[in-house]
Design a binder for these strands. Sequence first.
DNA 1: GAGTACGATTACATCGTTGAAACAGCGTCG
DNA 2: CGACGCTGTTTCAACGATGTAATCGTACTC
Lengths: 339, 339
Amino acid sequence: MAASLKDVAALAGVSVKTVSNVVNGYTYVAPPTREKVERALAELDYRPNLSARNLRQGRTGVVALALPELDAPYFAELTRFVIDAATERGWTVIIEQTDGRPERERQVLEGIREQRIDGLIFSPITVGRDELADRDDSTALVLLGERIFEGPTHHVAIDNQRAAREVTEHLLSLGRTRIAAIGRQTSPNANTAHLRLAGYKEALASAGLPYDEALAPPTDSYHRRDGAEVMERLLALEEPPQAVFCFNDLLALGAQRTALARGLRIPQDVALAGFDDIEDGRYSTPTLTTVSPDKEQLARVAVEMLEQQIYGSRHTGGRPLPREVTAAHRLLVRESTSG
Amino acid sequence: MAASLKDVAALAGVSVKTVSNVVNGYTYVAPPTREKVERALAELDYRPNLSARNLRQGRTGVVALALPELDAPYFAELTRFVIDAATERGWTVIIEQTDGRPERERQVLEGIREQRIDGLIFSPITVGRDELADRDDSTALVLLGERIFEGPTHHVAIDNQRAAREVTEHLLSLGRTRIAAIGRQTSPNANTAHLRLAGYKEALASAGLPYDEALAPPTDSYHRRDGAEVMERLLALEEPPQAVFCFNDLLALGAQRTALARGLRIPQDVALAGFDDIEDGRYSTPTLTTVSPDKEQLARVAVEMLEQQIYGSRHTGGRPLPREVTAAHRLLVRESTSG
DNA sequence: GAGTACGATTACATCGTTGAAACAGCGTCG
DNA sequence: CGACGCTGTTTCAACGATGTAATCGTACTC
């Protein structure tokens, strides 16, 4: 079986605690002793038992990443960065999929998992300020990709509203005036959707154009299927749109599918823009204009914020991070708006 | 802080062990006692400390899923099913990304993680029979999507060779005789690639067609980029192919991008088939003909195989699972071969 | 009515690790 | 020279849970 400190201690002829000291890099160990212990450690291929260590230290070294669904490319790409950043700190990441269902999200917040967790990075869809405030679990928490202001919670996200405005302005700059939006949500807590809609409206208003709700049909979720279905409805309008801003790339790819299947040319007949910069959009035909959030930064900051809550600010060089961080984003113009 | 058995015991006025017995459903607890304890458990919102439980029991309840990369859609979709199946058993899944790098794969096999793990589901790319046989870690292991025969290892995969043959036969049935393959790998351990290539050759041979290596260029990896690049080379041939079988959907989507960007019509000028049935292929234009492995079955069987190794066969109803399971697959004909 | 069987509960040790504190040895300083 | 401080090492207890064995009470058997 796996070797314990006791076995190593016996082999090296020292006490268990001395071995522990060597393992943990404690300063006051005499060089000959240290060497002896290290030989024994190597010989037995010692690995610390994390269950025991965690039990003793009251920390688990495990953080959870709760997101709607792993098989949405945006979240898969983001998850890779979160795992990378966590692994650098010796943390293990477990993943909770909420499917965007309110009861699952609430369970996650209340710590449904028996598994104790040092921190939670949470990408919510339906949960709002009130649920967050009500939460009585004291586990460290960071909201990812969501901004709930005046709340008690750390969060990191890009400036969704500004990014949405920029996309819409880009579509306007093509000379299109009838611009649809796909991704509006009716739930009052769908913060991200609201911000993107606000940016869209803002750009229309600046251009002196009216906001027409018929051009911004609501969607239940953000999959290709939804984009495809809503696009059908938009194309069936008496005056179909000349451009469509989709609130994520999956919606855009669904909409693109519908438009192309109807024989429309993109961007000549209808221009198309998405949001998220998933890899699919870089290889679709036409390639997809989109907003590219700095996913690596989002992930890194989220992990740093957790780190700070868990260990206190001394750990991040004394420099306390703000509760709210705005990550970078770029507008990537591709063929679907400039073919 | 979180309540421990001790706190619950104090509140209920019984011993710690009695509370433990209630929590674990031990039979001989008097109903009034049980009720008292349960009230206390509820009042304090008791959650067992898994670190302590694991330390005592020598199991961790954690299994690792090691795969090349989470942001490849096939693996993201598969991961969702693995997590679902593991969660049903109360297990936690942690994810290791190897990026298909040999040294990372070897580390995973040797249990690089300090975190102790009850089992490992491993989707290898470069590791071969020898490395598996040399392994001295006794952790339960299941290979996923890979078949290494005569080895010591449990594995579950679809019949890659047959599926590849079926795809190629389908392309032949369209009347195409010049059929390329994208995804050949030169490494001797790239088992999956070899099997798919073998199926491709088999179908060609049955049709009396020669195997032309120029029509099966090697690829380093299986991303859209690789598919796009290799397709450039194929289209630059004196006699470009009339159909292309790509060993996964990402390669196919990359190849599709190249073909469409060159102004070719799919499938009229060149038919295209992939492998994996990722969601992208259902919404690309044209939609992508592909092999659909039963991902849910792959994941479920892999988890069952682990379960059996960890608990012994009694746990799966006495019925021991074989070491090798072939999961189902279907050929899905879509627009890219029948537009 | 003594002996036994069994239900219900508890005391205790233990899993592997680490913080606190004690201790031993040795040089330094007043 | 005795007190002190420093290095280097050990002893001990504790984290929270559970398996083992012991204990206690009651009902049942002969």
